[in-house]
C-alpha cells in the first residue's frame, strides 16, 4: 500500500503517467487528505534531495568559498602592510632597476623587433619546383638553416631576384652576413621591385651586427615609397 503510493508519487513527479492515470491521481489528491499530505511531503523531500545533490549547488558552494577567501585575503593583506612594507620596498627597488636596465637596453633598436618577414610564395612559376618548394616551406616555418640548405642547391642561373632576396633573409637569420649582404647588394644595384626590400634588409643586417652607423646610412636612403619606410624611420629615431 505505502510502497504503491510512493511509486505513484515518483511517477507523477517524473511525468511518467498517462493522461488517464494523471487525472485519477489528481482526483485522489483532492479527495484523500492523507494522500495529499503524504504527497506534499514527498514532493518537498524530493526537491530537498534534488537541491542537495545537484551540481549547481556544489558549484555555488565552491564559488562562495572562493569569493569569501578572496575578500578575506584582501582584508588581511591590507592589514599586514606594515610588516611587509620593507619587503615591498625591496621588491619595488628591484622592479625599478629592472625597468631602468630594460629601458637602457631598448634604447637601441633590436633586430628581433623587426624580423617579421613576409612569407615566400614562389614555387609555382619556377624551374626545379621540388627543391624550391622545400626552400619555401622551410623559410615559411622559420627553419632558416634548412632553407639555406635548399636555396644553396638551386643553381644560380635558376635564381631570380625574388628567390635571392629570400635566400638572403634566410642567410641573415643564420648570421651568414657576408653572403647575405653580397646577394642583397646585387639586388640593390639592380632594377627589380625588390630593390627597396634589399636596402631594408641590408640595414637590418647591419642592425643585427650592431653596426649602427652603417645601418643608419642605409636606412636614410630608403625612399618614402618603400614598404618598410615607417619601420626604418622608427629605427632611425631610436638611433
Amino acid at each position: 500500500m505505502q510502497e504503491e503510493m510512493y511509486f505513484a508519487f515518483e511517477q507523477y513527479l517524473g511525468n511518467e503517467m498517462n493522461l488517464e492515470d494523471r487525472a485519477a491521481f489528481e482526483k485522489k489528491l483532492l479527495e484523500d487528505t492523507y494522500w495529499k499530505e503524504s504527497f506534499e511531503l514527498y514532493q518537498q523531500t524530493h526537491q530537498f534531495l534534488k537541491t542537495k545533490f545537484s551540481g549547481e549547488t556544489a558549484a555555488f558552494k565552491q564559488n562562495l568559498k572562493q569569493i569569501a577567501l578572496e575578500n578575506q585575503s584582501n582584508k588581511n593583506s591590507s592589514k599586514i602592510v606594515p610588516m611587509y612594507s620593507k619587503w615591498f620596498a625591496v621588491a619595488a627597488t628591484v622592479v625599478l632597476f629592472c625597468s631602468i636596465w630594460f629601458f637602457m637596453q631598448s634604447n637601441e633598436p633590436k633586430y628581433v623587433e623587426y624580423n617579421q618577414h613576409e612569407k615566400a610564395y614562389f614555387t609555382a612559376r619556377s624551374e626545379g619546383v621540388a627543391i624550391l618548394k622545400e626552400a619555401q616551406d622551410a623559410f615559411n616555418t622559420k627553419a632558416y638553416e634548412s632553407a639555406v640548405g635548399y636555396f644553396e642547391q638551386i643553381p644560380q642561373a635558376n635564381r631570380n631576384e625574388e628567390i635571392n632576396l629570400y635566400y638572403a633573409i634566410a642567410l641573415l637569420e643564420v648570421n651568414k652576413f657576408e653572403q647575405a649582404e653580397t646577394l642583397l647588394q646585387a639586388i640593390k644595384s639592380g632594377n627589380s621591385v625588390y630593390k627597396e626590400k634589399a636596402i631594408w634588409y641590408l640595414g637590418l643586417s647591419k642592425l643585427k651586427q650592431k653596426d649602427y652607423s652603417s645601418c643608419k646610412q642605409l636606412l636614410e636612403v630608403l625612399p618614402e615609397s618603400a614598404d618598410d619606410y615607417n619601420k626604418a624611420q622608427e629605427i632611425l629615431e631610436k638611433l
Binding site: Y6, F7, L41, T45
Partner: peptide, 17 residues
C-alpha cells in the same frame, strides 16, 4: 532501482513526519 528510489524517498518522508 526505480522502485528503490521511491521507497527510500518515502522512507525519508516517514522519518521526517
Amino acid at each position: 532501482v526505480r522502485k528503490k528510489k521511491s521507497l527510500c524517498t518515502g522512507q525519508l518522508t516517514q522519518l521526517i513526519r
